[in-house]
Design a binder for these strands. Structure first.
Length: 427
RNA sequence: GGAGAGGUGGCUGAGUGGUCGAAAGCGGCGGUCUUGAAAACCGUUGAGGGGUAACCCUCCCAGGGUUCGAAUCCCUGCCUCUCCGCCA
């Protein structure tokens, strides 16, 4: 949620900044609601004050042994009036809240203007694309050729957009998770956490997936009731929600979490997109970085966190590039995002493998995630950041395609060999 | 699944109908003392919101109800803990 004060006091400017990312705020609607809110709130508070004063007087009269019957009658009427305005105020505030929960974050000034992913800006490129003396296969042909990847089996078990992996490839998949976790824990100083894969609606509202993006989620039913629990679409949700309703000490910042978790996405809006292979699945594994930061440090930390994600690609020897998402392509909760795109020889394209975002205080406000500022003694909103480091399924795809040889074998990147009993090639 | 106990400020914890937004302790902040620190002592210290301001309102898990008045009484839900049973 963006700052309500900002919305009230700098509405024009805020509207302009939201337009940069293609969001049109209904200014009239908001202003009308806000005007009504003010009027009804003042009225309600006056009535409340009146009631409080009179009730107190009744208490004193009673203590003095006076007759309180006439006093009671007058306050009784007041109570009825109060009930009406209180209800009205509640409705208005709810409407205002509903409106504000659907407004996306304001893009940081450094975010390039643009409409969609075509306007994203390449920041840096790393690694050499592999040169093959044969026609490189894509990961589906490689995996099915080795009988290690089976989409039909998964379709039988569940449906489309699921997969099964077997043997050495399943092992490499697991090795990747271990490797990434170890790297971030040992060298980057993150605290490993294990969290629930099922969360409630409140958590999803905290990080911004709800109320607006329910169609992207898998909702669970229990006792015939739904809409209470959801499968997590990313570990960002449970991990960032660890901060909910907490007040941290300044000395605790930045708080750095790393978490491996499966992610579940309904991909409702992407029929026909990436239907081949494991690029876009309903279920995939991800190692996620989450940080709670001092507001003045969050942009430094975004750079650092992006480097942490890049380190995974570098150690694995995968060519990639970093792009800054444009205003039209950043996510709902993000103020700024870098995507890491890995080179896929099978597609002859860079494909997203990580997304690192600074949400500033947007999520923190929804979460009431704060730190105590020693200068003021007051709690103040944190900045939250999250980044994939990395999406495991897509990393596996990248290794398969970049490390293939002319015989359809897949070589094991050196850093993974110790996680696979020294195995050097999958054949 | 059965039986019981409980959810109060940053934390621990008192408070069972009327200046209670809430005792006390811890923690935090400021001060005295000290070369400095610790200890001791004194003071101070919840959050959110409205208003130019004085000031006012809301909040004691959540939602309803009773009452002139609710942290306190009643109902529902959620959560936590203890014991028994079952179980990976």
């Amino acid at each position: 949620m963006i700052d309500p004060h900002r919305l009230r006091n700098e509405l024009e400017e805020t509207v302009r900044q939201l337009e940069r990312r293609g969001y049109r705020l209904d200014k009239k609607h908001f202003q009308a609601l806000e005007l009504k809110r003010k009027e009804v709130q003042v009225q309600t508070q006056q009535l409340q004050q009146d009631r409080n004063v009179r009730s107190k007087a009744i208490g004193q009269a009673k203590a003095a042994g006076e007759d309180i019957t006439p006093l009671k009658g007058a306050v009784s009427e007041l109570g009825d009036k109060l009930k009406v305005t209180e209800t009205r105020l509640e409705e208005i505030q709810q409407a205002l809240q509903d409106t504000m929960l659907e407004i996306p974050n304001i893009p940081h000034e450094s975010v390039p203007d643009g409409r969609d992913e075509n306007d994203n800006v390449e920041i840096r490129v790393f690694g050499d694309k592999p040169v093959f003396e044969f026609e490189p296969k894509d990961h589906v042909d490689l995996g099915e050729g080795l009988k290690l990847l089976d989409f039909e089996a998964a379709a039988k078990l569940t449906g489309s957009r699921f997969m099964t992996i077997q043997g050495a490839l399943a092992r490499m998949h697991r090795a990747l998770i271990q490797f990434m976790l170890d790297l971030h824990v040992r060298e980057h100083g993150y605290l490993e956490v294990y969290v629930p894969y099922i969360v409630n609606a409140e958590s999803l509202q905290g990080t911004g997936q709800l109320p607006k993006f329910s169609e992207d989620l898998f909702a669970l039913q229990r006792d015939g009731r739904c809409d209470e629990f959801y499968l997590i679409p990313t570990a960002e949700v449970p991990v960032t929600n660890l901060l909910r309703d907490e007040i941290l000490d300044e000395g605790d910042l930045p708080l750095k979490f790393v978490c491996h978790a499966p992610c579940f996405r309904s991909e409702a809006g992407s029929y026909g997109k990436d239907t081949r292979g494991m690029i876009r699945q309903h279920q995939f594994e991800k190692v996620e970085l989450v940080q709670a930061a001092h507001p003045e440090q969050s942009y430094e930390i975004l750079e650092e966190m992006t480097r942490h994600a890049e380190t995974v690609l570098k150690r694995l020897g995968l060519p990639y590039r970093v792009v800054a998402l444009c205003t039209g392509d950043i996510g709902f909760s993000a103020a700024k995002t870098y995507d890491l795109e890995v080179w896929l020889p099978g597609q002859q394209k860079y494909r997203e493998i990580s997304s690192c975002s600074n949400c500033e205080d947007f999520q923190a406000r929804r979460l009431q995630a704060r730190w105590r500022n020693p200068d003021t003694g007051k709690p103040q909103l944190l900045h939250t950041l999250n980044g994939s480091a990395l999406a495991v399924g897509r990393t596996l795809v990248a290794i398969m395609e970049n490390y293939q040889d002319g015989n359809g074998r897949i070589h094991v990147p050196p850093v993974l060999q110790s996680y696979m009993d020294g195995m050097t090639v999958i054949e």
